[in-house]
Deep mutational scan, measured.
Amino acid sequence: VDNKFNKEQQNAFYEILHLPNLNEEQRNAFIQSLKDDPSQSANLLAEAKKLNDAQA
């Protein structure tokens, strides 16, 4: 993981990586967004979790 991520951002990265119901395309999009703007990690994680739950 890129060293410019802080602890919260790293946690978001790993959580998104391991959400079971996202397809690869969705997962990659969230990860790319996280890399583009790490400050949005909490929002991105919340969105990813919502999508993950919706696809459960």
Rank of each mutant, 00 (worst) to 15 (best):
F30Y: 10
L45A: 04
Y14T: 12
E8F: 02
D37I: 07
Q40H: 11
A54P: 06
K7R: 05
L34Q: 03
D53A: 15
N11A: 12
E15P: 01
K4A: 14
F13V: 05
P20M: 09
S33V: 10
S33R: 14
A46P: 02
F5P: 15
K7C: 12
A42N: 13
A29Y: 12
A56N: 12
I31F: 06
N11S: 11
E15R: 05
I16E: 01
L19C: 05
Q9R: 01
N3Q: 08
L51A: 13
D36E: 07
L51Q: 14
Q10D: 05
D37P: 00
F30R: 01
L22S: 00
Q10V: 05
L44S: 04
P38V: 05
N43I: 14
N43M: 13
N43G: 08
E8S: 05
E25L: 12
S41A: 09
V1G: 15
H18G: 11
D36V: 13
P20N: 11
N21Y: 11
P20K: 05
Q10Y: 06
V1T: 07
Y14F: 12
N3M: 01
K7D: 15
D53L: 11
I16T: 01
L19T: 01
R27N: 01
Q40R: 14
Q26A: 04
N43C: 09
S33T: 13
L44W: 03
K4V: 08
Q40F: 07
K35G: 08
S41F: 15
L44Q: 06
S41N: 03
R27L: 07
L34G: 01
K7N: 13
N23H: 11
K7T: 14
I31Y: 04
P38Y: 02
S41T: 08
A12F: 03
F13A: 07
A29V: 14
Y14S: 08
A46D: 10
K49A: 10
Q32N: 14
F30T: 02
L51V: 10
Q55V: 11
R27D: 00
F5C: 15
A54H: 13
H18Y: 10
A29L: 02
A48K: 00
E25Y: 12
L45N: 02
A29M: 07
A42K: 06
V1N: 10
E8L: 02
D53V: 05
K49S: 11
K4Q: 10
A46C: 09
I16N: 00
Q32A: 14
F13W: 13
Q40K: 14
L34F: 12
N21Q: 04
P20Y: 05
P38G: 06
D37V: 10
D53Y: 06
N52Q: 04
N43K: 12
N52C: 04
L17C: 12
I16Y: 00
S33I: 13
E8Y: 01
L51D: 02
N23G: 10
D36W: 08
N21G: 08
L44C: 07
E25R: 14
Y14K: 09
N23R: 14
N6K: 01
L34M: 07
N28D: 09
N52A: 06
Q10P: 01
N21E: 09
N11C: 14
S39P: 10
Q40G: 07
E24I: 10
K7H: 08
D37L: 07
E24W: 11
L44R: 05
S41G: 04
S33H: 15
K49P: 00
A56Q: 11
D37C: 07
F13L: 06
K7W: 04
D2N: 02
N6A: 07
E47N: 06
E24T: 05
L19G: 00
A46K: 07
A42C: 15
Q10L: 12
K50D: 06
E15H: 06
F5I: 15
L34P: 00
I16C: 01
A48T: 01
Q10G: 03
L44I: 10
N28K: 08
Q40T: 10
N6T: 06
K49I: 06
Q32L: 07
L45I: 03
S41M: 10
V1Y: 02
D53E: 11
K35N: 12
A48E: 00
N28W: 10
L17E: 11
I31N: 03
A46H: 13
A42L: 10
I16H: 00
E47G: 10
Q26G: 01
L45E: 04
N23Q: 10
K35P: 01
N23K: 15
D37Y: 08
L19K: 01
V1P: 09
E47Y: 06
D36G: 09
N52L: 01
N6E: 15
L17W: 07
N28V: 04
Y14R: 11
S39T: 13
A56W: 04
P38D: 03
I31R: 02
Q26R: 03
S33F: 10
F13S: 04
N11V: 15
E25F: 10
A12V: 12
K49L: 09
L51F: 06
A29T: 09
Q55A: 13
I16G: 01
S39K: 08
K50L: 15
N11K: 13
E25D: 14
A56F: 06
P20A: 07
V1F: 06
A46S: 09
N28H: 06
Q40M: 15
K4N: 15
S39F: 02
I31Q: 06
Q40D: 14
F5Q: 10
L22D: 00
E8V: 02
L17H: 06
N3K: 05
K35F: 15
N52E: 03
R27F: 03
L34D: 00
K35R: 15
K7Y: 04
Q9D: 05
L45K: 04
K49M: 09
E15L: 04
D36L: 09
N3A: 04
K4R: 08
L51N: 05
A42I: 08
K7V: 05
E24M: 10
S33K: 09
D53W: 08
N21F: 10
S41L: 14
A29G: 12
F5L: 11
E25M: 12
H18F: 08
V1E: 15
L45V: 08
A46M: 13
Q9N: 02
Q55K: 09
P38N: 03
K7S: 04
K50A: 09
L34R: 00
L19N: 01
K50P: 00
L22T: 00
D53K: 14
L19M: 08
Y14E: 15
F30P: 00
N28R: 12
S33E: 15
F13R: 06
Q26F: 04
L45T: 06
K7A: 04
S39W: 07
L17S: 12
N43S: 13
A12M: 04
D36K: 04
E24K: 11
N3D: 15
E15T: 06
S33Q: 10
P38L: 05
E8D: 15
E25T: 06
S39N: 13
K50T: 12
L19V: 01
K49E: 03
A42S: 08
Q26C: 09
V1H: 10
L19Y: 08
K49N: 10
E8A: 04
P38M: 04
A29S: 11
A56E: 14
L45G: 02
N52R: 02
F5M: 15
N52D: 11
L22A: 00
E25N: 15
K35D: 04
R27W: 01
S41K: 02
L44P: 01
L51R: 08
E15F: 03
L17P: 01
Q9P: 01
Q9L: 13
N21P: 00
S33G: 10
K35S: 07
L34H: 01
A29H: 08
D36C: 13
N6M: 03
P20V: 05
F13K: 07
R27C: 07
D2V: 01
Y14D: 13
L45Y: 08
Q10A: 08
A29K: 13
F5N: 14
Q32D: 13
K35T: 06
K4I: 15
D2R: 01
L44G: 01
L17Y: 12
D53I: 09
L51E: 05
P20L: 09
D37F: 06
V1D: 04
K35H: 07
H18I: 09
Q40A: 08
A56H: 12
